[in-house]
Simulated scan of single mutants.
Amino acid sequence: MSAHYLDISAVSIEFPTPNGSFKALDNVNLKIEQGEFISLIGHSGCGKSTVLNIVAGLHNATQGGVILQGKEVRQPGPDRAVVFQNHSLFPWLSCYDNVRLAVDKVMKGKSKAERHEWTEHNLKLVHMEHAKHKKPDEISGGMKQRIGIARALAMQPKVLLMDEPFGALDALTRAHMQDSLMEIQAELNNTVIMITHDVDEAVLLSDRIVMMTNGPAATIGEILKVDLERPRERLVLADDPTYNHYRAEVLKFLHERHAKKDVPTAKKSSAVVEVEIPTTTTAAEKHAAA
C-alpha cells in the first residue's frame, strides 16, 4: 500500500498511430499528499492532459500506474472529479439542476431534502445561489465555470482535477476565480491537480509546481516547492521578492525547454529534481534569475 495519498508511479503511456507507436509519457513519478495543490505546467504537447486523464481513469498507463489511498486507479470514479476549460454544462438544465445531477449520482441513499440541501450548499460555496434558476446561456463564462466547479465539489471527490479551468476567461474574471478557488481549497482542504499555462497562476495557487519536459516521451523535469504563507494576496505578492523568484524559476525552465523544442527528449532517469527556493532573495539574485 502506498504511504502517500496519491502515488503516480513510473507512468509511461504509448498510443498507436499510422506511423507506429507514439510514446506520450515516459516514467512519470509524483507523490502527492492529502490537501496539496499541485500545478502541472509545460509547453503544449508535454503530456499534462495525459497525466490528468490517467489520474482520472480515462486512460490506462502502458507501464506503471496510479494509487489513490491504497487503491489502484483503473477507471473513472466519483472520487476524482474533473473540471475542464469548457464548462460542459447541460444547456437545457438550470444551474441548480446541473449541480443536482452530480448530487443525485453520489447521494443515492439520501433523502430529497438532504440532496437539495447539499446542492444549495455547493452553489453557495461558489457564490452562485442567486443564479440557480438560470440556464447556462443566461450567465457569463466565469459564472458557468463556477457552476462546473460546484458540480465537481458536490461529488465530494478525494481529488479535484482541473484542466486549464480559467484559460478561456478574461483577466479580471480569472483573478476572481483564482481567489474563489483559494478560498474553497482553504475551507475544504481539497487535493487539487491543475493544468495551467499561466506562470503567475501556478505560483499564486500552488504548494508545488510540476514542470514537464517537452514531448514526445515527456516526463517531469523539475518540481518547485512554493513556500508562501496562506492566505495569499495577489497585490501583496506582486512586490514580494520570494514570489518573483519562484516566478523567475518557472519562466527560466519554460524558456530553456522552448529553446530545446526541436531536440529529441532524452530518456530521463526516475530521479526528479525537487527545487526549493530560499525564502529571502537579494535584488541582485532576483535580477539574475529574471
Rank of each mutant, 00 (worst) to 15 (best):
A3S: 03
Y5H: 15
Y5V: 13
L6D: 10
D7G: 04
S9C: 09
A10W: 01
I13F: 06
E14H: 13
P16T: 03
S21C: 13
F22P: 03
K23F: 04
D26I: 05
N29W: 03
K31V: 00
E33C: 00
Q34A: 15
E36A: 08
E36D: 11
F37T: 06
L40K: 02
L40H: 01
I41Q: 01
G47Y: 02
T50N: 10
I54Q: 13
L58A: 10
N60G: 02
T62S: 12
V73C: 09
V73M: 09
P76Q: 01
G77V: 01
V82F: 05
V83I: 01
N86P: 03
N86R: 09
F90Q: 03
P91I: 05
P91N: 07
W92F: 08
D104Q: 10
K112Y: 03
A113N: 04
E117T: 15
N122R: 01
L123H: 04
K124Y: 00
K132Q: 15
K134T: 00
K135W: 05
P136L: 04
D137Q: 13
M143I: 06
M143S: 01
K144R: 15
Q145H: 12
I149P: 06
A152M: 00
P157G: 05
V159M: 08
L160Y: 01
M162G: 07
A168F: 08
A168T: 03
D170R: 01
R174H: 08
H176F: 09
S180E: 10
E187Q: 15
N189E: 12
N189I: 04
N190G: 01
N190C: 07
N190D: 02
M194I: 11
T196R: 11
H197L: 00
H197A: 00
D200R: 11
E201M: 02
V203M: 07
V203S: 07
L204P: 07
S206F: 04
I209T: 02
M212I: 06
N214W: 06
G215N: 09
A217S: 15
G221P: 04
E222I: 09
E222S: 15
I223E: 08
K225E: 14
D227K: 14
L228V: 07
P231K: 10
V236Y: 11
L237G: 07
A238I: 02
A238Q: 08
D239C: 12
Y243T: 15
Y243L: 14
N244W: 03
H245F: 10
H245K: 13
R247E: 05
L251E: 15
K252H: 13
F253Y: 14
F253D: 08
L254C: 10
H255C: 00
E256I: 04
H258L: 10
H258D: 13
K260E: 13
S269Q: 06
S269W: 05
S270E: 13
A271L: 08
E274T: 12
E274K: 10
V275P: 11
P278N: 14
T281H: 09
A284C: 01
E285T: 13
A289G: 14
